[in-house]
């Protein structure tokens, strides 16, 4: 059984319910504002979109890429509506265009512009893209999906809410394939079970060695 797929303007429910995300009311009925999957619970209705840019939320952990250096700071691409900026005063490390950082969203204003904090420079590793709206699917209920993937690949993985995954060590190829699987099947039920089967079939049940003493953050060449 799969959740119902709707497009913008399509009816979600005619019943009176509390409004969750990505729905709106017109003449007493609830409609979707995006292409996505319907969550029609007993007391509230919402839609989980399948497309869309990352809309920053306070306290989100995100992964940014430095795009430029200015006198007082650096331009950062956070994969949202606008580029962001970090001032040199807040940093211990020296950054350059291409540097990958993790950061926390400290503030979001009414224009969706963000202030970043807790900035750390990643040491090595790779970043892989994932559609921002599918990140919750990649993490799973209480991290269940991500744990299966971590277990199967043995990689150090950090998932940025803004649609970027940083990974180091382990079976990166399997990680890439797992992310692609979530992308393709995010809208189908029982994905966590299928992912477990998939990982099992790719590794033959062997648990890979967890990388030891791998540093994730720090200065130096990437």
């Amino acid at each position: 059984m799969t959740k119902r797929l709707v497009i913008p303007g399509e009816l979600v429910t005619e019943e009176r319910k509390k409004l969750g995300s990505h729905v709106f009311v017109r003449e007493g009925k609830i409609y979707s504002d995006s292409i996505g999957l319907v969550n029609d619970e007993a007391d509230f209705a919402s839609v989980v979109p399948l497309e869309g840019k990352y809309a920053p939320q306070m306290n989100d952990v995100i992964i940014g890429v430095i795009t430029s250096e200015r006198f007082a700071g650096y331009g950062v691409d956070i994969n949202s509506f606008y580029p962001s900026f970090v001032s040199k005063k807040e940093l211990r490390e020296v950054l350059k265009p291409g540097s990958i950082i993790s950061a926390k969203i400290m503030k979001v204003n009414e224009f969706n512009e963000v202030e970043l904090g807790s900035i750390r420079l990643f040491f090595g590793g790779e970043i892989m893209p994932v559609t921002p709206v599918k990140v919750p699917r990649l993490i799973g209920k209480e991290g269940s999906m991500l744990n299966i993937i971590k277990g199967g690949t043995g990689s150090n993985i950090i998932v940025g809410r803004n649609g970027r995954v940083w990974a180091k060590g382990g079976n990166l190829d399997l990680l890439r394939k797992s992310i692609e699987k979530v992308e393709r099947e995010a809208h189908v039920d029982h994905l966590t079970d299928r992912m477990a089967e998939f990982i099992q079939s790719q590794t033959g049940g062997k648990k890979p060695e967890a990388p030891r003493g791998e540093e994730m953050f720090g200065e130096g060449e990437q």
Partner: peptide
């Protein structure tokens, strides 16, 4: 659309 992260990572192109 998935953004091509590599566009931002000239450093990775050169290093590879």
């Amino acid at each position: 659309m998935i953004s091509a992260l590599w566009d931002l990572r000239v450093d990775k192109v050169v290093a590879d």
